[in-house]
Design a protein around this nucleic acid. Structure first.
Length: 1094
RNA sequence: GGGCUAUUAGCUCAGGUGGUUAGAGCGCAGUCCUGAUAAGACUGAGGUCCCUGGUUCGAGUCCAGGAUGGCCCA
């Protein structure tokens, strides 16, 4: 066994990875449970193969890996299939950028076939990259057996799904106003627009005057934030019940809502004067008035009439209370056009360019016309005022272009009925956190029909064939069906994937009218691709038995922001339609990765952290420990990683990169494990101890050993139970607690045992116990920190047991041994720790350091059982506190005082209002009265009080007696536990303390002399007469502690070097380290018995 | 605009069904311990439990109103 005293995590991880590769460990892991009759079905949510992994992806992938590894170690057979999401606009946009293409027209000029091929290439390129990064994270999947949503199988399974929807009559073509990206040239549904895609932007808003036809010289005052839509205006809406006013200002007469009069004051600048209200009237009185449109002179507006309509959604909180209506440019507007039979003007094409018929606007982009429109209106005398207006406005989630509203034809799956079926299915799932169900149901209740089409190139070819002649459409459900129906173009398509442009060569004949029918040009919504995977990856179409074996998945996990309306939603929709049941049993959702300051990570903000940088600077295991320790409901703040300069400096100096405090905290538990491990290995090597060659029954081991073994069993139980319910944060907490106990108490208390020279039962027990704790701990840690645990396992286990499993990841999950759990011993040991804590506090108050021995510690605990336990384990207390005797304080000890505390909880219901009086009385007792009361309660079992003439009898469970220390003694206390320190330092005690100080200094000098722990020395001390005498009296223990083969004590300093001298130092009253007023020269020389000295 | 949720120490957060002295971790200050430790222990400072009102013998906890933030949906 070997071990370094410090870990370089990234270096360790690379070394372990190499070893795994060389030994084919991953393959063995994947096939370890092939013959098992238990199985566990994990379904991977496909990661988009369009960019490298960020640290936020690593969070989810760590969960996926953790739970699969846990199940593997428990013996479950699994599929370990990783998935890549491949199709969709996100890939197209990046390929466009790579090619320098600016819009769809340029893509078509470039060639759809070439473009689609490049999209595929990009996907495969990033799939490879992500695979490498995942492996770096220690993510163990059946690499090479991944699924890709671009696969024929995935696409045809979606066809199958759509066919089923079609058969149920759920698919329809909608003609509606959609949010539309003029750059991408496609509709963007609200499903795709995340909250962060609403940007704060400034737009030129216009207050426009619409001239009323029947009332010459009078106008409607209308406000709009989208001047480009004015050319499509056909109506003005008022709230029928709202009050409007007719106003005169600067010789102009116009109408607006009364509530908005303050607007006139706000807008009053140098160019606007005072106003007068001429008349008040109800909105409904305005309804039916006609007016001239602001762009009536344009050809497109010819024959369009404009009038005032009623609309209850009109609000008087913004604008003028009169709303400009352009049915071709707004969702609600379009709905109103149906209700009031309004003309519909669709002024722009798919790129947001005005079409023919709009005069000087034709050919211009909507994004460029705000100011020209304002100027044009001003010339016509129709502009009241223009004003910059800041508001939140949706942008394209992919290219961040501002969206517009545009009238288009898109394809939908109706959710009218389906949503209720899906809600039932959603209830079958165990949602973690539990609020996930409510979120999903909320989305299901409120969502619109699912828009599945996109007017793009790289994606699922929607198998919808719409007859241009008779207007009917059909959905094709499989490749075979298409072949059957194909009347031309099959040869051209054959051999290609079912993508544009190849698929579009195939034509079928209309069942209704016999016309030749093409596929619609649209591709599918990418969430169809990801939602079908519980079917497509399990060979649903060809092998139902296999599918049934793995469906539904036991577990899925993804980040929940967004996924309620994306993946989770798509999964539920598709499975509901196909099978009427849930595709997954348990869902673990987790929050968002933020930067150290709690800000969202953005490449553009410069606070995003590359996965590769993080892995190389802090280590994959460190990151995994951070992720698995995190409460998944809370956003995770990812600490800053060391800079490039920090790394370069570390490389120059040949040491591991120094991490920030935050990272050190994250990794503290792992570093502690390493330290324990290093301690064990160091001493086992010195002793030549081989753990496989010894045995010692647990009953014959010490209290300390049996205690930590009991803690270990409980830790196994807790970690197992936590992981079973997908609660990794609780699992890591249990592990951390155990590690603390092992490090801070067990090892601390065992040092002496291991340090002593002979291998007796006690030392053997310590070794065997520590070894078992370490090896079990390492196995428990394996799914969390696979590299770190493997490294320790190889060294601790494989180096001495050739028959042990090759890798820790091939080991069985530890089983708790119930017979080793000793609840009482655990409690008692925790009590001892508490008493020791109090002892330390008392020492601090007395300002007596622990190295100074003291004679007596008096202890008083609330219960008899506790007192007995402390007596039984008193050696641990005394050793730890460096005190010679422990005695219990009797109830009537003069060192004790008492306070009484009423149990309001018990007394309240019994005495009602009187409770406050009882409380006050007990609180007000002086020390003497309190002691008397405590005695009465102790001796008579009751306490009698008189309050307001009423006799009250309190029982022991109604009043708590708390022992405290009487002033004048050095004590510490906590909830009725009291320790009192006997602080007299006799000459003997003082001498012992001095020797201990001296021993400590000599140990430190050994370290400075670069001696190994096991090196022996020859020690020479030249001291004052008095100190020399003390040293002589304690020579034996001093020699034993410092491994001094010889001890020479002089009373005069030695100037000349001694033979083999390694180190010398003089302690004096003026040196930094001192022994009270004494002076002593310490000289350390090599001992002939020590073989190697450096 | 509607719904959900939160507000407790400098920071991050715990605090079933009301019980009088509100906790943890981190940070800060100090002391100690250390031949495993980039560790650890102890002590201390630090709180009008967002505000106002109510119910109650008693409210961080229950009720009402308000303020501020977050998320979701419009």
């Amino acid at each position: 066994m070997i071990a370094a005293d410090r870990v370089d995590y990234p270096a360790l991880e690379h070394e372990i990875q190499r070893w795994w590769d060389e030994n084919g460990v991953l393959q063995r892991y994947v096939h370890r449970n092939d013959q098992s009759d238990k199985q566990y079905s994990f379904l991977d949510g496909p990661m988009t193969a369009n960019n490298p992994m960020g640290v936020h992806h690593a969070w989810g992938r760590t969960y996926k890996d953790l739970f699969q590894r846990f199940k593997t170690m428990q013996g479950y057979r699994q599929r370990y299939q990783n998935g890549f999401d491949c199709q969709g606009l996100w890939v197209e946009v990046n390929v466009e950028q790579e090619l320098g293409l600016k819009n769809k027209r340029e893509i078509e000029e470039f060639g759809i076939a070439r473009f689609v091929e490049l999209c595929k290439e990009r996907v495969f390129r990033f799939a490879r990259r992500i695979t490498e990064q995942s492996i770096r994270l220690g993510y163990w999947m059946d690499w090479g057996n991944d699924y890709y949503t671009l696969s024929d199988e995935n696409n045809y399974t979606i066809w199958h799904f759509l066919k089923r929807c079609y058969e149920r009559g759920l698919i329809y073509k909608g003609h509606d106003v959609m949010t539309w990206c003029p750059r991408c040239g496609t509709g963007i549904s609200n499903m795709e627009t995340l909250s962060e895609d609403w940007h704060e932007v400034s737009h030129l808003s216009l207050y426009v005057l619409f001239p009323l036809i029947e009332r010459p010289g009078e106008f409607l005052l209308v406000w709009t934030t989208t001047p480009w839509t004015l050319a499509a205006n056909v109506a003005a809406a008022v709230h029928p019940e709202l009050t409007y006013v007719k106003v005169e200002q600067d010789g102009q007469i116009f109408y607006l809502a009364e509530e908005r009069l303050n607007l006139l004051r706000e807008l009053r600048g140098r160019d606007k004067g005072e106003y007068r209200v001429l008349e008040r009237l109800k909105g409904e009185q305005l309804v039916g008035w006609s007016y001239r449109g602001p762009f009536d002179e344009l050809p497109a507006a010819q024959g369009v009439s404009h009038r005032v309509i009623p609309w209850k959604e009109v609000s008087a909180s913004e604008g003028t209370g009169i709303v400009h209506i352009a049915p071709g440019c707004g969702r609600e507007d379009f709905a109103l056009s149906k209700e009031f039979d309004l003309a519909v003007l669709a002024p722009v094409d798919e790129f947001g360019i005005y079409v023919e018929g709009y005069g000087w606007l034709t050919g211009q982009s909507v994004s460029a016309v705000a100011r020209p429109v304002a100027e044009n209106l001003a010339q016509k005398g129709l502009l009241y005022r223009s004003q910059n207006y800041r508001h939140r406005y949706p942008v394209c989630w992919r290219c961040k272009t501002e969206l517009i509203f545009r009238l288009v034809d898109e394809w939908y799956i109706s959710m009218e009925q389906l949503r209720y079926e899906i809600m039932e299915v959603a209830r079958q799932v165990t949602w973690i956190p539990a609020f996930g169900l409510e979120r999903e149901l909320d989305w299901l209740r409120n969502m619109d029909d699912w828009m599945i089409s996109k007017k793009r190139y790289w994606g699922l070819a929607l198998p919808i064939y719409e007859c241009q002649q008779c207007g009917t459409f059909e959905v094709i459900g499989s490749k075979e069906e298409l072949r059957e129906r194909a009347v031309e173009g099959w040869e051209e398509f054959e051999g290609h994937s079912p993508h544009r442009p190849w698929i579009d060569a195939v034509k079928i004949r209309c069942r209704q009218c016999g016309a030749l029918v093409s596929r619609i040009k649209d591709v599918g919504n990418p969430w169809l691709d990801a939602g079908i995977v519980p079917f497509s990856t399990l060979d649903y179409r060809h092998n139902r038995d296999y599918w049934r074996q793995w469906f539904p998945a036991d577990f899925v996990t993804e980040s929940f922001p967004g996924q309620f309306k994306n993946w989770f939603y798509a999964l539920l929709v598709m499975s509901t339609v196909l099978e009427g049941t849930t595709p997954f049993k348990t869902l673990l959702g987790y929050a968002t990765v933020l930067d150290e300051d709690g800000e969202i990570m953005h490449k553009s903000k410069g606070n995003a952290i590359d996965f590769d940088d993080a892995a190389e600077r802090v280590g994959a295991d460190t990151m995994r420990w951070l992720y698995t320790s995190q409460d998944p409901e809370q956003n995770l703040r990812f600490p800053r990683i060391p800079s490039r300069e920090d790394v370069e400096r570390a490389v120059r100096e040949g040491v591991p990169v120094r991490l920030s405090e935050k990272w050190m905290l994250v990794r503290r538990a792992l570093d502690k494990v390493w330290n324990i491990y290093w301690f064990f290995v160091t001493y086992a090597n010195i002793d030549g101890f081989d753990p496989t060659r010894y045995q010692l029954a647990v009953e014959r081991r010490s209290d300390l050993d049996r205690w930590i073994l009991s803690e270990l069993q409980q830790t196994i139980l807790e970690v197992t139970a936590s992981l079973e319910r997908y609660d990794s944060a609780h699992a890591t907490e249990s592990l951390q607690n155990f590690i603390e106990h092992l490090s801070n108490w067990y090892l601390r208390r065992s040092r002496e045992r291991i340090w002593k020279s002979e291998l007796d039962d006690d030392k053997l027990g310590a070794y065997l116990t520590l070894y078992e704790c370490l090896t079990t701990l390492v196995t428990l840690l394996a799914p969390f920190v696979p590299f770190f645990s493997e490294s320790l396992y190889q060294n601790l286990v494989r180096s001495v047991q050739q028959e042990a499993p090759l890798s820790v990841h091939l080991c069985d999950w530890p089983q708790a041994r119930q017979e080793l759990i000793d609840e009482a011993l655990v409690q008692d040991t925790h009590l001892v720790m508490r008493v020791v804590g109090l002892g330390r506090a008392a020492r601090e108050k007395a300002q007596i350091r622990v190295r100074q021995p003291l004679n007596t510690l008096y202890v008083r605990l609330p219960s008899q059982a506790d007192q007995e336990a402390v007596l039984r384990l008193k050696d641990q207390v005394l050793e730890e506190l460096n005190i010679k005797r422990l005695e219990l304080l009797s109830d009537d000890s003069e060192m004790l005082a008492y306070t009484l505390r009423a149990q309001a909880r018990v007394l309240g219901p019994k005495y009602g209002p009187l409770v406050q009086k009882i409380l006050a009385m007990l609180k007000g007792l002086d020390a003497h009265a309190a002691s008397e009361a405590a005695r009465q309660l102790r001796e008579q079992g009751v306490l009698k009080l008189t309050i307001e003439g009423r006799e009250i009898t309190l029982t022991p469970d109604e009043v708590e007696v708390i022992a405290t220390a009487r002033p004048g003694y050095v004590t510490a206390e906590e909830r009725g536990a009291v320790v009192v320190l006997e602080t007299t330092i006799t000459p003997e005690l003082r001498e012992e303390g001095l020797i201990r100080d001296l021993t400590h200094y000599i140990q430190d000098m050994r370290k400075r002399a670069n001696l190994k722990i096991e090196d022996h020395i020859q020690l020479t001390l030249c001291a004052d007469e008095e100190l020399a005498a003390m040293v002589q009296r304690h020579a034996a223990e001093l020699q034993e502690e410092t491994l001094a083969d010889s001890l020479r004590v002089e009373t005069t300093p030695i100037a000349e070097p001694l033979p083999g001298e390694l180190y010398r130092e003089t302690l004096s009253p003026t040196s930094p380290r001192k022994l009270e007023g004494y002076t002593v020269q310490v000289i350390i020389a090599a001992s002939p018995s020590s073989a190697a000295i450096h």
